[in-house]
Write a protein that binds this DNA or RNA. Structure first.
Lengths: 208, 208
DNA sequence: CAATAATGAACGAACGATCGTTCATATGGA
DNA sequence: TCCATATGAACGATCGTTCGTTCATTATTG
């Protein structure tokens, strides 16, 4: 009996996931060349040779992890994209800030692996993600109903939204990935409020 | 006689500089663990063993390079600190932008080595640089004559200046280190003008 | 000044350790 | 039986570091 379960015809294959998880942790903490296949095998509780039953080379393993994260990261139900879809710029600045914090929290490992790629592979696996960025933001804005954002004249809406989102991302990456906790001397919500205030009304006093 | 010269008792010792230069280039391009001592020796035109006449270990060599850059980076005659000393916030936003660009251009190698440290050494050699950042900005502002900056009420001047400077740094690091040329869809001067405009007057139209 | 001793930079072979990868073999469910 | 999965010893290459040695220069001596 018990034939109802075991939906996968192959054997457990849980080892593959354990290899991926162990490799992710080690690559993130000590880089690609600083991590040995033996370390990965030991942390995953798997034999050394078994890694090569699942991945052709160590670099293939690294690239696979990056690709998996990328697929997950750009899913439309991730916090940032939900804000893009459900709210309007620039009224949603605080929401963009909170969503950016969630994204950095969720994908901190991925972002550190991007740094690994930049440092040890000259960004060869991820460089394409950085191209045509403004156009992607422009497309996001165009796909929203309700016409273009109402901004001060002369401002490019796509560039403006990029400026806001990148500001939040860089803030949270400093906070959470570089361990510079509280580097603005205030809490995350206070920082979001401050950033939003500056982005909306600027630094200068109003009476001039 | 001739005691005025020959401050160094030993011969040329130009090799030490060549080792440092070669190691900097290689560490920046392929990381610490991705660079072998043999590569460094070959690129420097020096024997393998000679590296160890000048530096105790490979990691010592890396740390020495970081320390040298740090000393240079914080010299008061570097572009950013000259702007801090000679101009007033927030009138100097464009000058902060140009100086940030110069700093990233001059110290791009240093910044990439910082990423190397984050990725391969868990930031253990540079983490201290990120602590007490707001207070350092506050001290910078306090040391300027002319009283506190005139900003909209409720804004912390130190945090506000940090926000501006970090925005520029992150922009130029993306442009020059991550090879995302023109990622805002405009030239560097245009980007500086746009950022300055947003920081001064905000995103919202003035008539509300 | 000439002769000698002392210095430490420079070299590259060599060491033991560890690297990524392969392979012969074992296992266990279909 | 078959075949995908799992194992770990083994391979050749390369790693960071050490070592004995050479050699040009400097310092000391007479």
């Amino acid at each position: 009996m018990t034939l109802t379960k075991t939906p996968s015809p192959r054997a457990s294959a849980g080892n593959r996931e354990r290899i991926l998880k162990a490799a992710t942790t080690l690559f993130r903490r000590q880089g690609f060349h600083g991590t040995s296949t033996r370390e990965i095998a030991e942390k995953a509780g798997v034999s050394l040779g078994n890694i090569y039953n699942h991945f052709k080379t160590k670099e293939d393993l690294f690239v696979f992890i990056l690709a998996e994260y990328e697929k997950e990261y750009f899913r439309p139900d991730q916090p940032l994209y939900k804000v893009f879809a459900d709210t309007s710029f620039p009224e949603n600045i605080e929401a963009l800030g909170e969503a950016s914090g969630k994204m950095v929290h969720k994908f901190g490992d991925y972002m550190l692996l991007m740094y690994v790629d930049v440092v040890e592979f000259d960004a060869k696996h991820i460089a394409r993600l950085f191209h045509g960025m403004r156009d992607r933001y422009a497309k996001l804005l165009a796909s929203r109903p309700g016409g273009p954002p109402r901004l001060r004249s002369g401002l490019d809406p796509a560039a403006a939204m990029m400026m806001v989102v990148w500001n939040f991302f860089n803030y949270f990456m400093m906070e959470k990935l570089f361990k510079a906790k509280g580097h603005y001397g205030m809490s995350d919500p206070d920082a979001i409020r401050m950033f939003a205030s500056v982005f909306r009304k600027g630094l200068l006093p109003e009476d001039r």
